[in-house]
């Protein structure tokens, strides 16, 4: 099938970007979206032109490195799917596809579709862990955890850190990302002792990185590849308020 592409090209964070038009004539339905971009890049490189830079690595939906806005939707039209798992059978002959980088003040463009998401790492650095050193751990079965609790913790822990929640949010808030980690660790006895310290530092860091506030539009969950629940945000707010009140 024939596909028209309008791709955001931007040399670096300082330069001005613009959409450029490309057309691919022979796109197979079985191609993944990134493989479609590979074929475009192969053509560009062969012509001596600079290929479209985009983030990707595992190409099986788990590393969280890929991500772009496809026709205005983070990771494209398929629900709960990363860009690398999107296939061209979701499009039809003659379609025009707009491709842009994730846009947020906290995600500066590195080049073309590639953005810098280290702000998410900084949030984890500020407290998204259990403070246990290697060697300190007690026997694993000494603390039973109900099946349902472990499963609920997993649901929150499944976040792949791609940043689609931020890109989908009109406020560019990282509330879903941050709250998922807070919830995972709060649900497990191992993480509970540090909950209030953790929630206060992570929320503070989130603000310092330039992410916006959550206004409950719930767009983040809709476009999250892992379907992380917005209820985590409610839990984060609850824990945050509790920590603030109890600590003062």
């Amino acid at each position: 099938m024939k596909i028209h592409l309008k791709i955001w090209r931007q040399k670096d964070s300082q330069s001005k970007g613009e959409f450029k038009d490309y057309t691919l004539d022979d796109v197979h339905q079985e191609l993944s979206f990134l493989e479609m971009l590979d074929t475009l890049n192969l053509k560009l490189v062969k012509k001596g032109e600079y290929p479209v830079e985009f983030d990707h690595d595992c190409r099986e939906g788990i590393c969280g490195q890929c991500g772009m806005m496809i026709n205005g939707i983070a990771h494209g039209p398929l629900k709960n799917t990363t860009t690398c798992q999107l296939h061209m059978r979701s499009f039809k002959d003659g379609d025009t596809i707009y491709i842009e980088p994730f846009k947020a003040a906290a995600f500066p463009v590195v080049r073309d579709l590639k953005v810098n998401r280290s702000s998410l790492d900084h949030i984890i650095t500020s407290g998204g862990y259990v403070s246990v050193d290697t060697g300190q751990a007690p026997e694993a079965n000494s603390i039973p955890i109900a099946h349902e609790e472990a499963e609920a913790a997993f649901d929150a822990a499944a976040c792949i850190g791609c940043g689609a929640c931020v890109a989908s949010c009109k406020n560019a808030s990282a509330a879903l990302f941050t709250s998922a980690k807070i919830t995972q660790l709060e649900l497990l006895p191992q993480g509970q002792t540090e909950t209030s310290k953790r929630v206060i530092s992570m929320v503070k860091q989130m603000e310092e990185e330039g992410f916006g506030h959550c206004t409950n539009t719930e767009a983040c969950q809709v476009e999250c590849p892992e379907d992380i629940s917005v209820l985590n945000i409610a839990r984060m707010n609850y824990e945050y308020n509790k920590a603030k009140i109890l600590n003062k």
């Binding site: 862990y129 246990v132 751990a137 694993a140 955890i145 472990a150 660790l185 497990l188 191992q190």
Partner: peptide, 22 residues
């Protein structure tokens, strides 16, 4: 065996039986 202890202490949500054990 140490690794399972360490990872559990870090909050790795391993699958559990209904009684709460791994």
């Amino acid at each position: 065996a140490n690794l399972i202890d360490q990872a559990t202490a870090q909050g790795v949500p391993f699958g559990r039986e209904y009684g709460g054990y791994l």
